[in-house]
Simulated assay, not measured.
Amino acid sequence: MSKSKLSILVVTLAMLAGCATAPTPVQLEAASARSAIYGVATLAKNDCEAQTAADYTGVIVARRQAASLLRAKKIPVATAVNVQRLADEARAALDAACPGGRPDPEAIAVARAARAQIIQALEAPHAP
């Protein structure tokens, strides 16, 4: 056997031996981070729904925010319950805000007033 063939055989055997050994475990997890990303979207089929889409989105985000703050023990249970109640009121008003695709100013005002109360409730525990 020639020297070049022997060299190729030795290198090939060394590579095969290297592949046969167990791989060293690697930690793939990063340090835990306390953040989350949520995507929220609202579909509008007419001009009235487009006008109230931000209100719907705000109610959805407020519910999630209240739940997150409650889990983190940054707001009391009573505040979270109040936010959920106000969000239900806002949602009911928004559902009634566009009969036949035309805006109902009273229903929109009720929904926006409930959203304002939600914002106040969520900001109160954080006030200096």
Rank of each mutant, 00 (worst) to 15 (best):
M1G: 15
S2Q: 06
K3L: 15
K3T: 10
K3P: 03
S4H: 09
S4T: 12
K5M: 15
L9R: 04
L9P: 00
V10G: 06
V10P: 06
V10I: 15
V10A: 14
V11P: 08
T12K: 01
L13F: 13
L13A: 14
T21C: 12
T21Y: 13
A22Q: 14
P23S: 04
T24K: 12
P25M: 08
V26H: 05
V26Y: 03
Q27P: 01
L28M: 12
L28A: 11
A30G: 07
A31P: 09
A33R: 15
A33S: 15
A33C: 11
S35E: 13
A36L: 12
I37P: 00
I37E: 12
V40F: 15
T42F: 06
A44V: 00
K45N: 13
K45D: 13
K45Q: 15
D47N: 08
C48K: 10
A50E: 12
Q51G: 13
T52F: 05
A53Q: 03
A54P: 00
D55C: 01
G58R: 03
V59Y: 04
V59P: 06
I60H: 00
I60V: 04
I60Q: 03
V61E: 14
V61H: 04
R63F: 01
R63C: 00
R64N: 11
Q65H: 04
Q65V: 07
A66K: 04
A67E: 12
R71E: 11
R71K: 09
A72S: 14
A72M: 10
A72W: 08
P76I: 11
A78T: 11
A78Q: 09
A80W: 03
A80I: 01
V81A: 14
V83N: 02
Q84F: 10
R85L: 10
A87R: 05
D88E: 14
D88Y: 04
D88P: 02
D88C: 04
A90P: 11
A90E: 10
A90L: 09
A90S: 15
A90K: 11
R91V: 03
A93N: 05
A93L: 05
L94P: 09
L94V: 06
D95W: 00
D95C: 02
A96I: 00
A97G: 14
A97S: 15
C98Y: 02
P99E: 08
G100Y: 07
R102P: 02
R102W: 02
D104V: 01
E106K: 07
V110D: 06
A111M: 04
R112I: 03
A114V: 02
A114M: 02
Q117F: 04
I119Y: 11
Q120M: 12
Q120L: 11
A121V: 05
A121H: 08
L122R: 06
L122D: 09
E123K: 10
A124P: 05
A124L: 13
P125F: 09
P125G: 08
H126Y: 11
H126R: 11
A127E: 09
A127K: 05
P128Y: 03
